[in-house]
């Protein structure tokens, strides 16, 4: 589905990712783990087209080079970004409407209603400004917004960051559900244990390089990895 090879990512003159290969097969959930500053967000930015990058990124065989942000989205890449980035001045409903902006079919309203009943708390606040939601609610909203376009692949950037443990459980339950519905997911996390549990395959990123990768079974509960992750953090 998504094939990345030799990817280097740049922020101005700074090279944040130094040539990595990542593969996300159709219908799988792949986790990209690593400490702060490892280059996880940079990698996602390269995929969505918001950061300058070299190397190749293919979606279903199609080279994304030269496609701008909008065209990559229209090709099927959707992101629930770091920091959630919900539109705080829009209502919950309007945020979801933005997620479906590129769709022309008649099912938009129905799908929005479906998400609003999936998360009743969002349903109750449909006409409320999204800025008033709690962190967990905003995370659900940003994921729902990302999915309303019916993407081919969903990128999730640290969906559990800054949330209470109970809410983190809900977020990962949702990811688990999406996986069972057949959604292809690239999940960026620092919460290694929970991510390994939900993922089929794991990449570990440190200082802009993949240091380890393999099926999630090889990583146990991630406790060894936690030490490894903090160890490389100098």
């Amino acid at each position: 589905m998504l094939e990345i090879s030799g990817l280097k990512v740049f922020h101005g003159p700074i090279e944040a990712v130094h040539g990595i290969d990542i593969s996300v097969p159709e219908g799988s959930c792949v986790a990209l783990l690593g400490p702060n500053g490892a280059g996880k967000t940079s990698t996602l930015s390269a995929i969505t087209g918001t950061a300058r990058a070299t190397g190749t990124i293919r979606l279903e065989g199609r080279d994304l080079a030269g496609l701008d942000i909008e065209d990559r989205f229209r090709a099927g890449i959707s992101i629930a970004p770091e920091g959630r980035r919900i539109f705080a001045n829009l209502t919950v409903f309007e945020n979801l409407r933005m997620g479906a902006a590129t769709r022309t079919d008649g099912g938009i309203e129905r799908d929005i209603e479906e998400w609003l009943s999936r998360f009743p708390i969002l349903g109750e606040r449909r006409s409320q400004s999204a800025g008033t939601l709690s962190g967990g609610e905003q995370q659900m909203l940003t994921i729902a917004r990302a999915l309303l376009s019916k993407p081919r692949i969903l990128l999730l950037d640290e969906p559990s960051l800054g949330l209470a443990p109970k809410i983190i459980g809900q977020v990962f339950a949702l990811i688990e559900d999406l996986r069972h519905e057949g959604m292809t997911i690239l999940l960026v996390e620092q919460n290694a244990g929970a991510a390994i549990e939900v993922a089929d395959y794991v990449y570990v990123l440190a200082n802009g390089l993949v240091t380890r990768h393999g099926p999630s079974g090889e990583f146990g509960d991630g406790s060894g990895l936690m030490g490894e992750l903090t160890g490389v953090h100098d």
Binding site: R74, P81, R85
Partner: peptide, 24 residues
């Protein structure tokens, strides 16, 4: 209108609007 909502959204986070596939 959806374009109007997009304009309000863009006043806060233009790049996120583009990440929703709406052409800048």
């Amino acid at each position: 209108s959806y374009l109007g909502i997009a304009m309000r959204a863009a006043s806060r986070d233009f790049q996120m609007v583009r990440l929703c596939g709406i052409r800048a």
